[in-house]
Design a protein around this nucleic acid. Structure first.
Lengths: 159, 159
DNA sequence: TGTTTTCCCATGTTATCCCATAAATGCCCG
DNA sequence: CGGGCATTTATGGGATAACATGGGAAAACA
């Protein structure tokens, strides 16, 4: 259950996107027919994805970290309290795959990614995956390559 | 069974509102024909919604976790005692969907939300959903986005 | 007997299913 | 170690079903 690799996919005339078999195979049994897309909390124009189970698990971890185990009742009843898990739910959309493993990318995500022309980069990130605008991913990738080298250089002495 | 996404819906001339399929699909089997709306306890002009089962489950948790067996028994028998679950029940309205998946928003909620002109934002919050006045949701959303960023910033070093 | 509510039908749009083709992949057996 | 050969995958497109939305007519209500 680990999303890997980097694949550029395009939208066809109907707005459909092929979800590569390599990604589909990482969805848990019984949940191969769909997944969840949600927009990034911090990076504009970036869309994240995960299996339903993976997304729910993430929310559970978030809820435990943000509120502590006892406060979940308060989060449901007190609408004034900040509820990060609820926030992410509102930004998430359930995506269903057709029998051929394709899905239609919702309009809002097409706009965020400016995906109509160049398509999107599907990026495996281990426990989740991401949808990037190809050009923006290129920029980010170069930045991350430098950050990675710096990170590794700092590994020895530190600990 | 988790409400997701954010959808703006409008009232037609008859005051009907389309309940999107994405939300209807989250209602439990046998309860697809309606749901419960109830006003927020803490935020003025906000209306919450849930399936009948979800709403009942919430009240059960409220009685069990917040009050305990003795206090909830007292709440049933002693009319002078404060009964939060009973309070919420009295605020709640049962909503029925027509065969096309639409419902009429009761007058009191239209007023609270000032929904006649701009419609309402349907907001999936995971275990429940919310009805917001579009402009007010915009304000809240920006505040929550900032709170989310602050929360994420505090995640790394802290523990 | 007016008013409100509910049901039913019509329509344009979108999404879903199904079939077809072609490329890519894996596999068996010579 | 390669040919075939079957299977899976990617991609296009037509047919069908589902959805959102408007409006009329019947039913319920007062």
């Amino acid at each position: 259950m680990a999303f890997r690799s980097e694949i550029l996919v395009k939208l066809d005339k109907k707005g459909r996107v092929a979800f590569p078999a390599a990604f589909r195979d990482e969805l848990p049994d019984g949940q191969r027919d769909g997944f969840v897309l949600y927009r990034s909390n911090t990076v504009a124009g970036l869309v994240n994805g995960n299996s339903r189970a993976g997304f729910d698990g993430m929310l559970a971890r978030l809820r435990a970290e943000a509120l502590g185990p006892k406060a979940s009742l308060k989060a449901v009843l007190d609408d004034e309290a900040f509820d990060p898990a609820g926030m992410m739910s509102s930004q998430a959309r359930e995506i269903r795959l057709d029998p051929d493993g394709r899905f239609v990318l919702p309009e809002e995500f097409i706009d965020m990614l400016d995906a109509r022309a160049e398509g999107v980069v599907l990026l495996g990130r281990g426990e989740k995956f991401q949808l990037w605008n190809p050009a923006r991913w290129q920029v980010r990738r170069e930045a991350d390559t430098a950050r990675m080298a710096a990170f590794l250089r700092g590994l020895d002495g530190a600990a």
